[in-house]
Amino acid sequence: MPQDAGTPGRDPHAATGKRASALQIFLTFTQITLSGFGGTGFWSRLVLVERRHWLTHRDYVDCMSVAQLLPGPNVFNLAVIIGHRLGGLAGSAAAISGLVLWPFLIMIAVGLLYERYGELALVQRALAGISAVAVGLVLANSIKLASVLPRRWRPWLFVALAFAGIGLMRLPLIGVVAALAPFGIALAWREKH
């Protein structure tokens, strides 16, 4: 945490206490995002931990856990958290801009190309193949995440209810979450106590 930067060791989460300038952070997240074919999760760990040595693996996992718990794209939240660790508010702003700016511009360019060439049979066929693979990746992610759930029926009841409400009945998300979340949290609270 930046307010503790002058007193290393005070904050247990700031294990390394490394600092970086906003420009360095911006450029590093630019590198991560432009390497990130198929997603940026793999590259953010590699660059931040193994190449820059800005965080230890342990720090990275801690930041990931917080990022996953909060709403929004995990990589956005992770960029904000790590940017903040390294350079305060300016660091967060630099990280998120580096992460999003270039892919945004690429997406606009791709959008133009899609409008022009999207109907071409060749492009359509390539996209159909990529889509089939992309769905497999999402499904694999779901299964990998599901493996962290305990082997008891209660959590799986919530998995099934959320799946049925959204996937099969096509109800609005906010209603499903509002109906299930309080029970899920209350049960988890009771099991802990």
């Binding site: 718990l69 779901s142 599901a146 919530f158 998995v159 959320a162 899920g184």
Partner: peptide, 18 residues
Amino acid sequence: AIKLGLAPITIGLMFATS
């Protein structure tokens, strides 16, 4: 508790997405 309670719902939503 929030984290533990929301995890199954999150995973159910991911399966719905798939």
